[in-house]
Each structure stands twice: as C-alpha cells, then as structure tokens.
Amino acid sequence: MAPRTHSTTPETKNSTLIRTENLDKIYPLGLNTLKALNHVNLSISKGEFLGLVGPSGSGKTTLLNIIGSLDSPTSGSAEVLGRKIESLSHNDAARLRNKHIGFIFQTYNLLPVYTVFENVEFPLLLLGIDSSLRKIRVMDALEWVGLADRADSKPAQLSGGQSQRVAIARAIVKRPELVLADEPTANLDAENSHHIMKTMQQLNKDLATTFVFATHDEKVIGYVRRKISLVDGRIEKDEKQPRR
C-alpha cells in the first residue's frame, strides 16, 4: 500500500540535509587514540538513497552516529537539518532524533516486551500524538512493510526479516526527513535483504525520505544511488550509481 501523504515539497527536495566539514572523531584507546573519522567533508541532499560503504573500522557507524546526533565530533562540524550537532545539548539532540530522524539497526533493537503495534507506536507516543491518529499511522506503517496482520505479535514470534520490517515501520511511522540504517541486512538472508531494500527504496520514492545506510553488504550496495566509500576514516570515493 502506498503512503497517503508526502512529507516533502518539490522546493525542498534538492536542498542540503546533511553537511560535514573537516569532521574528525578520535577515540581514546588505552594510552593511545584511534582516529575513526579523518577530515570528512560531505553533503547529502534531501531524498537521497545513499550508502556509506567500507570495511569494518572504516568509520561508517561513527559517521552515522554523528549524523544521527547519537555522538558528537571531536573537531570539525556536522550540520543536520540546519542544526550543528557539536553544539546540541543532550535534550536538543534527543528532540532532533525524536522529530526528524529514524533509526534502523543491524540487530533490529525492538523492545521485547511490546507487541509489534506497540513497538511501531513508540515514536508517536514520544511525539505526543493522540491515540486515534497513532493507530491510523501505525497501521499505515505496518501495511507499507506488509506486517499489518502481525500487529499483535511479540518480537520473539517474528523471523529476522519480519523483525527488520517492524524496525523499518518504527523508523518511518513518524515520517522523518532522515532515516539512518546501520547494516540493516547484515543478519538477513539474500531474499529478506532484497525485500528490505525494496521496501526502503519504495518508501524513499513515495515519502521522499532520505535514507543513509552504513553497510559492507554487496546486496545493499547494489540498491543505493550514491555510494560513499570510507577507508580509515577518510572518504575515498563518492560515486553515483544507476537506479536498480
């Protein structure tokens, strides 16, 4: 089922959503330090379907975390939806994530004691949306990912692919401008990975939501329209890909 509304207008479609300038992230490692990001300069526009690719330790997740305001840069600047991540307080960062960013994790991170419906409903509860509207939007989101009939199931009763689809529904139910997905298909087989990527591609098209993936999975890389390769915390390549 196609989403009922589009959250973006044509005027904003090509505007810059994310911009980083000389972004560094250094972690203490015992007596030494580890430079996870090294002078990353990047610009991502609204509506992109983009993959951060690279081997383990290349800085994909770190970059994703900073863009998602879960972490802050050591130096340099990261601007997301017009807000400087480095100057956000904890509460402001939480508000930014709550209203504008959806997350999809490798291990789904569904809340085990909640049903599928309650898991998807959670971001709307935080936004203070009233009960009747919540119900409509949750059921819409579940229909987009094809799990409306599993609304009353608990996460433990779902397969990996179904769990990840619930996580997608949870990420998009609030119609965020940006969805960040960290290795969303790493725990899935080829068929489920294909379904997941197709679902996200469709949502990107219908909702004009910007998707940024961190992945080293070739199956995912084939779907993204822009591929940014990271090596040792640096951007090695930034290339457009043909639509699949």
């Binding site: 998602g68 879960l70 904890h90 509460n91 939480a94 508000r95 994530r97 709550n98 209203k99 997350f103 994790f105 991170n109 809340l111 085990p112 959670f122 971001p123 935080l126 936004l127 949870r170």
Partner: peptide, 12 residues
C-alpha cells in the same frame, strides 16, 4: 534497550 530509547528520541 536504553540505547534504543535514546535513539528513538527519549532524553536521559
């Protein structure tokens, strides 16, 4: 779970 709640937008 706390990390997930934070990612979903809950404050500490």
């Amino acid at each position: 779970e706390m990390g997930t709640l934070m990612a979903l937008g809950m404050t500490r």
